[in-house]
């Protein structure tokens, strides 16, 4: 029953962290643009996420007359479920894990791949041109960056000889962070992983699927109230969970001196999360053809080369 407790705790913490991660991002973005961000609700606007949630819950729920009702209603729920379910296999400390699957990395990749389906469902079911275009772009982009993501995640798997995230962290405790030590496949693989996860979660500079100056709001154009809220939430959960996975696979997970492991894991996760947001508010958007070219012409061969480098390191170095 140990794991059931952890499941509930991890989901609760993830949802609350997401709410205040949103606050953190708004504050950060505002400061970067010489603004103040939320200040009115609570001290420093700290109660803003609660106010937002209450507002979203009260909003009228509109089903467009031309939309495909069943798919339209199912899509936001599925998005949120897939985003949350990914975190099941991420270890936050020794034994602090919901499901210590021996195919952890595969689980993460599978749920990342599934995320494409509800996005396309929403785009198609809305029967709105902006949503459809947004959906097509999102699928093309997610599918293209899926390949480099899989290849980059394969490097820690090859080095540690296991797909269990716990085993990968243990390996890093015995040797060193994968992003640091076998520098050649490790560090580039970490960067490739970061880049691909940025693209997978549709963050700037990869946010062509909902480029607001072209597509209004992409797939979420027709959504109102809590259903829009679920899309929004899923996006932030996805970014947070990607940061946690990056920290566990490449940055040594919960290993670190002085403080308990859980602190280190959370620190690394938040560090990556903040990094992703600083990137978001610094860079401009890529053009679609640049996006596709980057993925297929550069990142895919790079990922393959890294995978074989890791294999050679393992076979020759016996590491």
């Amino acid at each position: 029953m140990h794991w059931l407790l952890w499941s509930v705790v991890i989901i609760t913490v993830l949802m609350t962290t997401t709410a205040w991660a949103l606050w953190l991002e708004r504050k950060l973005a505002a400061r970067m643009g010489s603004r103040l961000g939320p200040t009115m609700v609570g001290r420093h606007g700290l109660l803003q996420p609660i106010a937002d949630l209450l507002k979203l819950l009260q909003k009228e729920d509109i089903l467009p007359e031309a939309a495909d009702g069943a798919l339209f209603n199912l899509a936001p729920i599925l998005t949120a479920v897939f985003a949350i379910a990914t975190v099941a296999v991420v270890p936050f400390g020794e034994g602090v894990i919901a499901a210590d699957l021996d195919i952890g990395v595969l689980w993460v990749l599978a749920f990342g791949g599934l995320m494409v389906i509800p996005v396309w469902m929403a785009g198609w079911a809305s029967n709105n041109k902006f949503a459809l275009l947004g959906g097509m772009r999102a699928v093309a982009q997610a599918v293209s960056y899926e390949v480099p993501l899989v290849l980059a995640s394969m490097v820690p798997v090859i080095l540690a000889g296991s797909m269990s995230m716990t085993d990968i962290v243990h390996y890093q405790q015995q040797h060193s962070w994968i992003a640091l030590w076998p520098t050649l496949p490790g560090l580039p693989a970490f960067l490739l992983f970061l880049l691909a996860s940025l693209a997978e979660s549709n963050r700037i500079p990869f946010d062509i699927p909902e480029a607001e100056s072209e597509l209004v709001a992409g797939v979420s154009t027709e959504y109102t109230g809590m259903k829009f809220g679920l899309f929004y939430m899923a996006e932030y959960i996805h970014t947070l969970v990607s940061s946690a996975i990056g920290a566990a696979l490449f940055l040594g997970g919960w290993s670190g001196p002085f403080a308990p492991g859980l602190h280190w894991m959370l620190l690394k996760t938040l560090g990556l999360f903040v990094f992703i947001y600083v990137v978001r508010w610094t860079l401009l958007r890529f053009r679609q053809d640049q996006l596709m070219r980057l993925a297929w012409v550069w990142l895919v061969p790079m990922g393959l080369v890294l995978v074989f480098m890791a294999a050679v390191v393992v076979v020759w170095g016996g590491a």
Partner: peptide, 25 residues
């Protein structure tokens, strides 16, 4: 545990939609 985790996330996500159905103006 993995299956239960997916079920819990499904309950969390759909309960938000149900709550919105009950509370909406």
């Amino acid at each position: 545990a993995a299956i239960v985790f997916v079920l819990i996330s499904a309950v969390v996500a759909s309960s938000l939609v149900v709550a919105a159905k009950l509370l909406r103006v």
